[in-house]
């Protein structure tokens, strides 16, 4: 009996935390989305969202987040796989994680220098005989830098899933005559799917609302919903419209979470 009261008491801080910092903000965002710029209750913001500009922007955000997630996955999976096979895997893992301790803005500024017309990347291209070209403020550099930033978050869950994999399953597969590719396709990949899914969630969701990189690296040639929210809140001070965009962002995120957490039967 006493135990139960105590447990409830211990739950209190967490419950409060969730209510104040998770539930209340979301409710506030939804609430604000119903007010127009003059503070009157209306649906204008939702009407505005369904115009060409914002729909195009949603599509853009979705497309870039998708690209960033897929490329991160393609690089992260083999990396994580190789990591689990190395001798000092914790050390290698640490070395991959360390760059994520550095502030994102600092990294973005560093890339402005590297990708600049007279930066290191272009000097290398010239040396290699390819000749310098514009790297900064292109779609390429935007996706490249975003992938660079998100890759540690993709590697970690996949690495954990691969590391936990019972090696006897692999021996069994090869004993039963499975080729290496079949083992990967039928045994390794399905068993690490959960790691892949959480990796995709951790990358896709923040990628959807990236905003500083769109200005610093893409020079506002890529406009995402994150940029629009920033502008609505800070410049226009139209909190209603900013909140409305945020509501749609939340809907997309919830949809993506639901999609990636469906468990297939029999796996």
């Amino acid at each position: 009996m006493q135990n139960k009261t105590f447990r409830n008491l211990f739950m209190l801080p967490y419950a409060l935390w969730i209510i104040i910092f998770v539930i209340a903000p979301i409710l506030l965002v939804v609430y604000f989305s119903f007010f127009d710029i003059n503070g009157n209750f209306s649906l204008t913001n939702y009407k505005n969202f369904f115009t060409a500009t914002y729909l195009q922007m949603t599509l853009n955000s979705f497309w870039y987040a998708f690209l960033i997630t897929v490329i991160s996955l393609l690089i992260a999976y083999p990396t994580a796989y190789i990591l689990t096979r190395t001798k000092h895997k914790q050390l290698w893992l640490l070395l991959i994680i360390v760059p994520s301790w550095i502030n994102l803005l600092l990294k973005a500024y560093a890339f402005i220098g590297i990708f600049g017309t007279h930066g290191a990347a272009n000097r290398f291209l010239e040396w290699a005989g390819i000749g310098s070209r514009q790297l900064l403020f292109t779609d390429f550099s935007f996706v490249f830098v975003a992938v660079y930033i998100f890759i540690p978050f993709m590697i970690l869950p996949i690495f954990n899933a691969l590391d936990k994999l019972n090696p006897s399953l692999l021996y069994a597969a090869s004993d039963l005559g499975a080729s290496k590719w079949t083992t990967f396709r039928r045994v390794i990949f399905p068993l690490t799917l959960d790691g892949v899914k959480s990796g995709c969630q951790v990358v896709f969701i923040p990628a959807l609302s990236l905003f500083m990189l769109t200005r610093l690296i893409a020079g506002n040639r890529v406009i995402t919903l994150g940029t629009a929210i920033e502008q609505q809140f800070l410049v226009t001070q139209n909190w209603g419209m900013g909140a409305t965009i945020a509501v749609f962002l939340i809907i997309i995120m919830v949809g993506f979470m639901a999609l990636t957490s469906i468990r297939r039967r029999g796996v």
Binding site: G113, G116, T117, H118, R215, A218, G219, N220, R221
Partner: peptide, 17 residues
């Protein structure tokens, strides 16, 4: 237009960007 930027324009101009 090459880019639409904020205060970075100073650094970019100085770097002959």
């Amino acid at each position: 237009i090459r880019a639409i930027v904020g205060d970075e324009n100073k650094m970019l101009m100085v770097n002959n960007e």
